[in-house]
Simulated scan of single mutants.
Amino acid sequence: MPRRPHLILAGLAVPVALVAAGCGGPVPVDVPKLSAADQDACDAFAADLPDTLYDEKRVDIEPADAPAAAYGDPAIVVRCGVGVPKGFDETASCESANGVGYYLPDEQYTDQDLDLTLTTAGYRPRIEISIPARYRPNAGPAAMAVLAPLVKQHLTLVDDCD
Rank of each mutant, 00 (worst) to 15 (best):
D159Y: 10
L9Y: 15
R58G: 04
T110R: 11
D115S: 07
K86M: 11
V14G: 01
A75I: 03
A143I: 08
P149A: 14
L157S: 05
D30R: 12
P50H: 09
P28N: 10
L104R: 13
V77S: 02
A46F: 04
P141E: 00
G72I: 08
A70V: 09
D73I: 00
D43M: 08
P141T: 01
T91I: 06
E107S: 10
E56P: 01
A10L: 12
L118T: 05
T110D: 11
G87N: 08
M144K: 13
G22L: 06
P26W: 04
S130Y: 12
I61L: 02
T110Y: 13
K152E: 12
V16N: 09
D55G: 12
K86V: 14
F88G: 02
C23P: 02
E90V: 06
T117H: 05
P125L: 11
A92S: 15
A143C: 15
D48S: 13
Y123K: 05
D38A: 09
P5R: 06
V29I: 07
D60M: 10
A70R: 08
L150Q: 15
Q153C: 00
A36Y: 05
A142S: 15
L118E: 07
D73K: 05
F45V: 04
R3H: 12
A69S: 13
A41T: 05
V77E: 00
C80I: 05
E128I: 03
V158M: 04
L147Q: 11
A68P: 06
D51H: 02
G24C: 14
L12Q: 11
L118F: 14
P15F: 05
L104H: 02
P2I: 07
P5Q: 02
D89I: 08
Q153A: 15
C42V: 01
P15H: 03
M1W: 13
L53R: 01
Q112E: 13
V19L: 13
R126P: 00
I76L: 14
P26H: 03
A145M: 06
Y109F: 14
D65W: 00
N98A: 15
H6G: 08
F88V: 05
I129T: 11
V84S: 08
Y71G: 10
Y71I: 10
F88R: 06
A37Y: 00
Y135S: 02
K152N: 03
P26Y: 02
P137I: 08
Q153G: 00
V100P: 04
P50M: 09
G140H: 03
I8V: 15
V84Y: 02
T110N: 06
C80A: 05
S93T: 14
Y54G: 00
I8D: 08
E107H: 13
D30K: 13
V151E: 01
D106P: 06
P50R: 11
V151D: 01
C94E: 12
I76N: 03
D106Q: 13
A142F: 11
G22K: 01
V19T: 12
D159K: 15
V27C: 03
H154F: 07
M1S: 14
K33W: 05
